[in-house]
Design a protein around this nucleic acid. Structure first.
Lengths: 235, 235
DNA sequence: TTCCTGGTTTAACAAAAATTAACATGTTTT
DNA sequence: AAAACATGTTAATTTTTGTTAAACCAGGAA
C-alpha cells in the first residue's frame, strides 16, 4: 500500500524537524519546506495528499500559499498551524478553503488524529489508493463490479467477499498484502474469527485460480499473502 | 437541492436553542435532541449528513453515542462539542472516529466554517442530494416524476416505492447503495420488516431490468446493492 | 356502507453467502 | 523434536437474501 504524502511548510527548524520525524515515524512520506515559495514550488512539482502550512512564513505566508494552490486545486486538504489565538485568522483560513486549523502549542498526537480524520475522508479520491475495477492477470480477466472472474475454463460468479479479497490481491499483485490490512479494509476489524474467515476465502480463491498454473496465492507466514503471476518460472 | 440535515444533541437548553436557530438560519435542517438516548434513536430513525454532539450529556455521553453509531456507520461526520480543555478527551474522540472537536466557548462563525469544511468533503458522497429526475442507463429511460420506465420491450408504469428505489440506485449508479441508507430515505426507518420489503422490491426491479442484459443489480452481501452498467467498450 | 383494486407489507420457504467449528498440516521457537 | 502457533481445508451452522404468494390496507366506485 502506497504511503500518503504530506507537504509540510514550517520555518522554525526545531518544529520542522520534529514534525518531519514524527510523521515519518507514523508512516507518512513528508516533504519539508522552509518558506512559502519553496512550498508552492514543491506542491506544483509533486502530488501530495495533504498540506500542513504554518501561517507565518518567510517570503510567502500560509494563506497566500493556500490561495495560490486553490486556484487550480480545490481538493487537496490543507491544515494551518498558527501561534495566533483565534478568530479573525481562523475564519480567514477556513474561507480560503482550509480543512482544519490548529493553534500552537498542540500535541503531536492531536495533530496526527486530525490528519487521519481528514485523510479518512479523502482516501478513495487518491489515485494511489486505486479504485481500479477491472483486472487482467495471467489468463484471467476479473471484473470487480460485476463480481465476475473469467478464466481459461470459463466464467465464475463471485460473492462479494470473494471479489473484495481478490481485488485487494490484484491491487497488490506481486507484492505482499498484509493480513491485518485486508482484514481492516474488508472485514473492518482484525479479529481472530475474521482472520479465520479470510483463510477460508483464500482457499476458495486458490481453488478458482488453479485454472492457470502460473497464477498463485502464496502465503507469507505471519504477515499475509501475495498474488504472483509467474509461479512456474520461479523454480 | 435538498438541505443538509444535521443532528444536534445538546442538553443545555440555551445553547441548544441558539445552535438550532443559527444553523437553521444558515440553511441547514436541524433536529435537536436533549440527551444521548434520544440522539441515537433519532440517528437510527433518519438519515443525517452530519452530527454535532455535546460530550457531556444525560443518559448517554457523546462518545458512547459515537461508538454506537460507528458500529454500522463509518461515514457520517461527527463533531464533538466540549467544555473540557483538551488532550485525553480530544484524543479519545478522534479515535472513535470524530471529524472535529470544538471546545466551548466557540464562535458560531467558527462552528459554521468547520461544518462547511467537512461537508465540502463529503458532499459528493451524498448523491441522494441530487434532484435529478430523469435517468438514462443502458437502453433504459427512467422518469422519476412520471414513474415511468422505458426499456427495449416498452413502457412500464412503476409504483412509487419502485420508483424511489430505482431512483436511489440510479443516483448511485456503479457505486454501492447502502441498505440502511436506502431504508432510512425511502422507508424512514431501518427495521427488519422494511428490509424484507425492500428485498421484495429489488426482486421486482430485477425482473424489469432483465430486458437489458447489460444492466444488473448486484448484491453486496451484508451491505447493500449496486446498479451496474456494462462498460464493455473498455476492452 | 360494502366491494373492488392496486400498492405495500408480511409470511413462508428456498437458496446463497458468510461465519464458525473441527481437524489436518505446516512453520517457527525453544 | 516438542510445543506453540499459524494456516489449509472441508463441513456444519448461522445469517442474509431471493422468491412467491397471501394478508393487509387505504382510497375510489357502486
Amino acid at each position: 500500500m502506497a504511503k500518503y504524502k504530506l507537504l509540510v511548510v514550517e520555518d522554525d527548524p526545531n518544529l520542522g524537524q520534529i514534525l518531519n520525524e514524527y510523521l515519518s515515524l507514523k508512516g507518512y512520506e513528508t516533504t519539508l519546506c522552509r518558506d512559502g515559495e519553496e512550498g508552492v514550488a514543491a506542491f506544483k512539482r509533486d502530488q501530495y495528499n495533504l498540506c500542513l502550512f504554518d501561517v507565518m512564513l518567510p517570503k510567502k505566508d500560509g494563506f497566500s500559499m493556500a490561495k495560490e494552490i486553490r486556484k487550480d486545486d480545490k481538493e487537496t486538504p490543507i491544515i494551518f498551524l498558527t501561534a495566533k489565538s483565534m478568530k479573525a485568522d481562523t475564519i480567514e483560513g477556513f474561507k480560503i478553503g482550509a480543512d482544519d486549523y490548529i493553534t500552537k502549542p498542540f500535541s503531536m498526537e492531536e495533530l496526527l488524529l486530525r490528519i487521519q480524520a481528514i485523510l479518512r475522508r479523502t482516501a478513495d479520491k487518491n489515485p494511489q489508493f486505486s479504485d481500479q475495477k477491472v483486472f487482467d492477470f495471467g489468463s484471467f480477466h476479473f471484473d470487480f463490479d460485476k463480481q465476475l472472474l473469467e478464466g481459461p475454463e470459463g466464467e465464475t460468479k463471485l460473492t462479494s467477499k470473494e471479489s473484495e479479497l481478490l481485488r485487494l490481491l490484484c491491487l497488490h499483485i506481486n507484492q505482499p498484502l498484509d493480513r491485518s490490512v485486508a482484514l481492516k479494509i474488508i472485514w473492518r476489524d482484525d479479529s481472530y474469527f475474521n482472520a479465520r474467515s479470510m483463510d477460508v476465502y483464500i482457499a476458495k480463491l486458490r481453488k478458482l485460480l488453479k485454472q492457470d498454473e502460473n497464477i498463485q496465492i502464496i502465503t507469507l507466514h505471519g504477515s499475509g499473502f501475495k498474488l504472483i503471476t509467474d509461479a512456474k518460472s520461479s523454480e
